[in-house]
């Protein structure tokens, strides 16, 4: 089993990793609000946000280029909207849109890369995110490994019988879907066998420490400061 990079990062140790997931979620929320309400023209503010994120990445001891590369995956999506703005002569807003998307992606990735998924989900649950939504995220995450494992095995099987062509790749996708569906029903069956009745039990609640409060306050203040002062 190959581990996803983010999954691996989330289980490392650092000051940021040790913080309670709720503090990190709160900090992220404050950051996202600050970024999204910043005026498009305030160049320095965006630099300020980038600096904050860089400091956080350093504190989390995560590989800078790898993280930024992954966050850049949102750019093609944002670029579509940015292009529309650009051609309707809103150049400053187009550039700001790209900057905001990218900064938000890095920040969100930072949360996921410093918080193991179980902790994150538990925190979301405590913060009263609807249980159904938490379950959906949980299963999405769980099945991600199932489906990527399935896809890898199929690719190995295909490439050991020759090169994978585009057409057969499309067919393979259909098979992958069918197999993932089967696998999903298998998992559901196993859940029923252990008495599942639609309610997901949660174990030990996380502990909120003074350091978590300090981190949360500092992070919110930093975001607000950049938003207001720069």
């Amino acid at each position: 089993m190959r581990y996803a990079a983010i999954e691996q990062w989330s289980r490392q140790q650092s000051v940021l990793h040790r913080r309670d997931a709720r503090a990190k979620i709160g900090a992220l929320l404050a950051f996202l609000i600050a970024v999204s309400t910043t005026a498009p023209a305030s160049r320095i503010a965006f630099a300020g946000y980038a600096l904050l994120l860089a400091a956080a990445i350093a504190a989390a001891r995560l590989p800078f280029p790898a993280l930024v590369r992954r966050a850049a995956l949102v750019l093609p999506v944002a670029a579509g909207f940015a292009l529309v703005l650009w051609f309707s002569d809103e150049r400053a807003r187009a550039v700001a849109l790209l900057e905001k998307s990218f900064l938000s992606a890095v920040a969100t990735l930072l949360l996921v890369a410093t918080t193991p998924m179980p902790e994150l989900l538990r925190a979301l649950e405590i913060l009263h995110l609807p249980r159904l939504l938490v379950l959906v995220i949980h299963f999405l995450y769980r099945y991600l490994f199932v489906i990527s494992g399935q896809a890898r095995r199929m690719r190995l099987a295909a490439s050991s019988r020759g090169r994978l062509q585009f057409r057969s790749a499309a067919g393979a996708l259909a098979v992958l879907f069918a197999r993932s569906w089967e696998r999903a029903s298998g998992i559901y069956r196993a859940m029923l066998a252990r008495g599942f009745s639609g309610q997901f039990p949660a174990l030990a609640p996380p502990r909120w420490r003074a350091a978590d409060a300090a981190f949360f306050i500092a992070a919110v203040l930093a975001s607000v400061a950049v938003r207001v002062a720069l």
Binding site: H138, F139, R142, V146, R183, G186, I187, R189, A190, A193
Partner: peptide, 12 residues
């Protein structure tokens, strides 16, 4: 079950 991957689904 035959396939343990189907039986284990919680995060830890």
């Amino acid at each position: 079950f035959q396939d343990s991957d189907e039986q284990l689904f919680m995060p830890t």
